[in-house]
C-alpha cells in the first residue's frame, strides 16, 4: 500500500512540472509586451523599463522560471494589478466561500445521485427508471446560469424564501449549491445506474438472492459496495467540474469566491491574479485526482499490484 501511494505521488511530478511551466508562460503568451500590460497603457517608456526590471522580464526565460518557482515556494504570487495587494491575500480571502459551496454541492449531489441511480437500476425499464434517467440527462443539459437565475426568480423574488445572493447566512448556500450540484448529481445517477446494473448480473448476487437474503440487503449491502468502485472515481473527477462550474454559479449569485474573482480579473486583465487562480485550480484538481486514485487502490486491491 505504501509503495503504491509513493508511486502515485511520483507520477504527478512531471504533470506538476509541465503545468507550472504552462502557467509561467501564460503571461508571455498574451500578445504584446507583458511589461507594458503591467505598467498600463499610459505609462512612459522609462516606467515600462522599470516594470520590466522589477518583474525580471529582462532576464532569460529559464532564470525567470526559477525565480517564479522559488517565489511560489515562499507563497509569493505577485501583486494584483487592480487592488495593488498581494495576490496571495486576495485569493486566501476568497478560498473558504468557494470551498464550502463546493462541499455542500457535492454532498447533496452524492445523496440524490446515488438514490436516483439505485432506484433506476433496481426498477430497470419501469417508470421510475425512465423518470430518473430523463431527469439525469436533463440535469446534464441544464445551463447552470439559467437554472440559478430561475431559482432566484422563483424562490427569492416571488416567494422570498432565500436571499438572491451572497453568503451572509446559511440560507444563502441553498440555491447556489442546488444549482452547482445538479449536473454532478445527474452524472452520479447515470454512472451508479450502469455500474449497479452490471453488478446485479453477477453470480454472487444470484447466490445472495437464492439463499433468501432480503432484496434490500442484496442491493444496498452486497451489490452497491462493489458498484461503488467506479462511482467513487467518477465522483472524484466531478470535483473538477464543480471547480469550473463554481465560476459561473458564483457570478450568478454574487458569491464572494474564487470563481467570481477570476471573472473580475479576466475582465480587468489582472494577469497575476488570473495566473495564480489557474495554478490553484489546476493544483486542486491534480490533488483531488491523486486522492481518488489512491482511494481507488484502497477499495480495489487488484489495482495496487498491477
Amino acid at each position: 500500500m505504501f509503495r503504491y501511494i509513493v508511486r502515485r505521488l511520483l507520477g504527478i511530478v512531471p504533470t506538476l512540472l509541465i503545468v507550472s511551466i504552462f502557467i509561467f508562460l501564460f503571461v508571455h503568451m498574451i500578445p504584446g509586451d507583458p511589461a507594458r500590460l503591467v505598467a498600463g497603457p499610459d505609462a512612459s517608456y522609462q516606467d515600462v523599463e522599470l516594470v520590466r526590471q522589477e518583474l525580471g522580464l529582462d532576464k532569460p526565460l529559464v532564470s525567470q522560471y526559477f525565480t517564479y518557482i522559488s517565489n511560489l515556494a515562499q507563497a509569493d504570487l505577485g501583486t494584483s494589478m487592480k487592488t495593488k495587494r498581494p495576490v496571495f491575500d486576495e485569493i486566501a480571502a476568497r478560498f473558504m466561500p468557494t470551498f464550502w459551496l463546493t462541499v455542500w454541492s457535492m454532498a447533496w449531489a452524492i445523496v440524490f445521485g446515488l438514490l436516483i441511480g439505485v432506484i433506476s437500476a433496481t426498477k430497470r425499464n419501469k417508470w421510475q427508471d425512465y423518470t430518473g434517467m430523463f431527469s439525469a440527462v436533463s440535469g446534464i443539459s441544464l445551463p447552470s446560469f439559467w437554472l440559478g437565475l430561475m431559482l432566484i426568480q422563483l424562490f427569492s423574488v416571488q416567494l422570498g424564501w432565500f436571499p438572491t445572493g451572497g453568503n451572509e447566512s446559511w440560507t444563502g448556500y441553498i440555491l447556489p449549491s442546488i444549482t452547482l450540484g445538479a449536473g454532478v448529481a445527474a452524472v452520479i445517477a447515470r454512472f451508479t445506474r450502469s455500474s449497479l446494473m452490471d453488478i446485479l448480473r453477477e453470480d454472487y448476487i444470484r447466490t445472495g438472492r437464492a439463499k433468501g437474503l432480503k432484496e434490500n440487503v442484496v442491493v444496498w449491502k452486497h451489490a452497491l459496495k462493489n458498484a461503488m468502485i467506479p462511482v467513487v472515481t467518477m465522483t472524484g473527477l466531478q470535483f473538477g467540474f464543480l471547480l469550473g462550474g463554481s465560476i459561473v454559479v458564483e457570478t450568478v449569485f454574487s458569491w464572494p469566491g474564487l470563481g467570481r474573482l477570476l471573472i473580475d480579473s479576466v475582465s480587468f486583465r489582472d494577469y497575476p491574479v488570473i495566473q495564480a487562480e489557474m495554478l490553484l485550480f489546476a493544483l486542486e484538481f491534480i490533488l483531488i485526482n491523486l486522492i481518488v486514485d489512491i482511494l481507488y487502490g484502497v477499495m480495489n486491491p487488484q489495482i495496487r499490484y498491477e
Partner: peptide, 22 residues
C-alpha cells in the same frame, strides 16, 4: 499523453477562460 494530462489538469471551463484571457 503528457500533453493531454496537462490540458486535463485545468478543470471544466477554466481552460477555456484561460485561453480567452490570452
Amino acid at each position: 499523453m503528457r500533453f493531454c494530462d496537462v490540458l486535463f489538469a485545468f478543470p471544466g471551463i477554466l481552460l477555456a477562460i484561460g485561453i480567452i484571457a490570452i
